[in-house]
Computed example of a mutant assay.
Amino acid sequence: MLPLLLASSSPYRRELLARLKLNFKYASPNIDETPHPSENARHLAMRLAEAKARALAPAYPNHLIIGSDQTASLGDQILGKPMTFDRAFKQLSNASDKSVTFLTGLALLNTQSGVCQVDCVPFTVHFRELTSGQIKRYLQAEQPFDCAGSFKVEGMGITLFRSTEGEDVTSLIGLPLIRLTDLLLSEGMIIP
């Protein structure tokens, strides 16, 4: 079986992949993540997931390379990682009493055969009506500035939601394990 490589520097994705009890290495791909003009969130997530996997292919021949990327959209607006308190506050204020759809692009590249499977797993979060005080307290407590949508569902971010909707909650964290398992099994991987 080909060795497994996660094309990501994200500790969240490494923690998720470790749940499958598979041996894997990880490396950070260097790609331009700038959206193309008029590119929608779904296409962006899938394009970047594949680009991440392909970026590491020359350095990792004879590997199965997992690429993943996540976008979030509020209506037609793509929400990125806020990186600052002020931008996170604005994102959560805009999401108050609304729904945000997270689209997690997933790619599995077999560098031996050249076959790349690409998919996108949606997950929707329905936010509670949030006050400025709630948003400030949450951001100060958890500081989710490196997370699209400005929250960590695996932490206190769950308190911001009225409900969630989707097939795989791990897609919300950034690596959809149910769909990834399907892709790995199709490549002959034996999963405990």
Rank of each mutant, 00 (worst) to 15 (best):
A41F: 05
Q77C: 15
Y26D: 15
S68W: 07
N23F: 14
C120I: 05
P29L: 10
G133L: 13
E50D: 10
S113R: 04
I65P: 00
Q70L: 09
A18P: 12
A88C: 04
T71N: 11
L139M: 00
L108K: 01
N40H: 09
L56V: 05
I66R: 09
T104M: 03
P58M: 08
F123T: 00
L108E: 01
R87I: 13
K90F: 15
F123K: 03
N23A: 14
L139N: 02
D97W: 05
L106G: 00
R87C: 12
N110S: 02
G114D: 00
Y138Q: 02
D86W: 13
V118P: 00
T131R: 07
L56M: 02
D119G: 06
K136M: 12
F24M: 10
L17F: 08
S38F: 15
L106D: 03
A45K: 06
L16R: 06
A55H: 06
I31T: 06
S96C: 05
I31E: 00
V100P: 00
P82W: 05
Q77E: 14
S28D: 11
S73H: 15
R13H: 09
R47Y: 05
S96Q: 04
L79H: 07
I66S: 09
N110D: 06
A95N: 03
D119S: 08
Y12E: 14
D97S: 11
R54D: 07
V115I: 10
D86K: 12
F102A: 03
L44W: 07
S132P: 10
Q70N: 10
R42E: 12
S73N: 14
C116R: 01
P58Q: 08
G114S: 05
V118K: 05
L74R: 03
F85W: 12
V100H: 01
C116E: 04
G114Q: 03
L74I: 06
T34F: 09
L108Q: 00
S93G: 12
G114Y: 04
A59Y: 10
L16I: 06
E129C: 13
I65K: 05
S38H: 14
F89S: 09
A55E: 05
K81N: 08
N23T: 14
A95S: 10
K98E: 01
P37V: 15
E39K: 11
R137H: 14
V118G: 03
T111Y: 00
K98L: 01
I65E: 04
L22G: 09
R47N: 05
F89E: 10
S132H: 13
R137I: 12
S73R: 12
K25G: 13
A55D: 04
Y26E: 14
L20G: 04
L130E: 02
Y138H: 02
